[in-house]
Design a protein around this nucleic acid. Structure first.
Length: 507
RNA sequence: GGCGCGUUGGUCAAGCGGUUAAGACGCCUCCCUUUCACGGAGGAAUGACGGGUUCGAUUCCCGUACGUGCUACCA
């Protein structure tokens, strides 16, 4: 067992945007695989054709790529266990379901959806559990209650049927979860899950076991919401005779909404104003667009770092990690048992840290499209200089424009009220002289601009404190932005003088 | 309702029988910066409850409460 090569898998169902929790599940899979020199496979669980969504699979792969997670095997890349889409593996499953029937571990059920509905209603009214379980199955239409002849007749007539697992009565099932330790279930309380659907497709329960076996998966990580169905999977491994090859399980804690409790949903993001999906997702059926972390201005390294630490503690003080560092440190027993509330403020803090770490030239490449959208033409050199000046005040890449637009366009409005508060005839004559002195200057460098400014102050007999703020507002429009002389230098002599003139005219 | 899982500051969390109960985000105060931000220094703030076990429980056990997940021919 321990000598086997580690193989893990992420098995999403292609039904829509890739949720934070999904990304974290992939991430933990990936980190675990890297840590142990193993393989990470991407398997698409598309056994429910009614929920198939066009483009979702490609979208998921793009999200992984953006996050810097490359599967060793996938539908796109192929691999020794291809195909990696369950819909293309359909032929595999029926034989195992049949084997279970032959062994008396499963049975045919001919109940129609309507009959099931009636059963559930009835038991609900009586206050019993409305499950198709070891008690109720005795009253339903299945190969346990029908004679062999009746079953054969129904089968021969192509009557739609499903295959259900026959849960034993009164057995205690125990397994060790890598995160939670010992977990146990009473089989009497678990229902007879459908294994093979009427359309011949397996349900998740059968497919996950068969494919994990066939693909030699050694460790299976999934969300906590799967814990209640673990006994079914456990029994399937046993009944199919593969128990010795069963992977180790880890059920990951949920990511919760920031306010109140409960699983974080896309709705919560919309409501509270933050993304929940990794990348923008446009639902092809409704054309509804949902913003992703990428489009919101997150760096993938920051996104991944933040997510990794939401539920996992590396055991060191350090908080900023590259993927390699995380892989080296990763271990399942340092994953928390309890769910973690998502904190968007902390997410932004991570992104801020990564923006500071990222080279200005690289940032320029990421920011160029934003400028292009606004029809701004700027040289790389200027862009890079601006980035150097404003990056420390950006938590998101998308904040770049609001922090720096005054470098590229003349502000349309300026906060004249704030200037007026300090305005006087002395101030006015100061700015008039300042203009004259700027026009006469030959050296438009940061230091020289400041020298001219200082000298003019002395000549005008004004306090520097009274002049600095109005000067800033005239250049950028308000009380914000980096050092004012650096701004003047970058926008240039002509533009600086122009802005002074405009401002003076409007006062 | 049944079953599973969980519970350390507002949030992420360390701890693994004896600690002044780390650290980070956020918040507050001050400093720096003649703007804002960054940065720096401080500060407030934490083991759900009740029983055990023990010389000693945040830590181990059992209850209770609360939360949450599941209870589909969805994953």
């Amino acid at each position: 067992m321990d000598t086997k090569k580690v193989r893990v898998r992420f098995a999403p169902s292609p039904t829509g945007g890739l949720h934070l929790g999904g990304v974290r599940t992939v991430l933990y899979n990936y980190l675990f695989a890297k840590k142990h020199g193993g393989e990470f496979v991407l398997r698409i669980e598309d056994t429910d054709q009614s929920r198939f969504v066009e483009g979702a699979e490609e979208y998921i792969m793009k999200c992984l790529e953006w996050c810097g997670i490359e599967p060793d095997e996938s539908p796109l890349k192929g691999g020794p266990f291809a195909p990696y889409r369950q819909s293309e593996r359909k032929a595999n499953y029926a034989q195992y379901a049949q084997q279970l029937i032959n062994d008396g571990k499963a049975y045919y059920a001919f109940d129609t959806p309507e009959e099931l509905e009636v059963m559930r209603e009835k038991y609900k009214m009586e206050g019993h559990s409305a499950q198709y379980d070891n008690r109720t199955r005795a009253f339903m239409r299945n190969s346990l209650t029908l004679t062999a002849d009746e079953v054969n007749t129904l089968l021969a007539a192509n009557t739609p049927y499903v295959i259900r697992i026959k849960m034993p009565v009164g057995e205690t099932l125990l397994f060790t979860d890598m995160i939670r330790g010992a977990v146990s279930f009473d089989t009497s309380l678990v229902d007879d899950k459908v294994l093979l659907k009427a359309d011949g497709m397996p349900t998740y329960h059968l497919a996950v076991v068969v494919d994990d076996y066939l693909m030699k998966i050694t460790h299976a990580f999934r969300g906590e919401e799967w814990l209640p169905s673990a006994p079914v999977h456990l029994l399937l491994w046993r009944y199919l005779g593969w128990e010795n090859d069963m992977p180790e399980w880890a059920h990951l804690p949920l990511i919760l909404k920031p306010d109140g409790n409960g699983k974080l949903s896309k709705r919560d993001g919309d409501r509270l104003g933050f993304p929940v999906f990794a990348m923008d997702w446009i639902d092809p059926r409704t054309n509804e667009q949902t913003t992703g972390f990428r489009e919101r201005g997150f760096l993938p390294e920051a996104f991944v770092n933040m997510l990794a630490l939401l539920g996992w503690n590396p055991g060191v003080e350090q908080e900023l990690f590259s993927m390699e560092e995380m892989a080296a440190l990763f271990s399942m027993d340092r994953v928390h048992k309890g769910g973690a509330k998502f904190d968007y403020e902390k997410a932004k803090w991570f992104n801020h840290q990564y923006i500071q770490k990222t080279d200005n030239v690289q940032l320029a490449e990421l920011i160029k499209p934003q400028l292009a959208d606004k029809n701004i033409i700027a040289t790389d050199q200027k862009l890079i200089q601006v980035i150097a000046l404003v990056k420390e005040r950006c938590h998101l890449l998308n904040e770049f424009w609001e922090q720096s637009y005054f470098f590229f366009v003349t502000p349309q409005t300026i906060d004249t009220a704030a200037i007026q508060a300090k305005w006087s005839d002395t101030a006015k004559s100061f700015f008039q002289s300042l203009q004259t002195n700027f026009i006469a200057s030959a050296d438009w460098s940061h230091d020289n601009i400041e020298t001219i400014f200082n000298n003019t102050i002395i000549d005008a007999g004004i306090k520097k404190g009274e002049a600095m703020l109005p000067f800033r507002i005239m250049l950028v429009g308000g009380k914000f932005g980096p050092g004012v002389f650096a701004i003047a230098e970058l926008i240039g002599k002509e533009e600086t003088i122009k802005r002074l003139q405009n401002a003076l005219a409007s006062l």
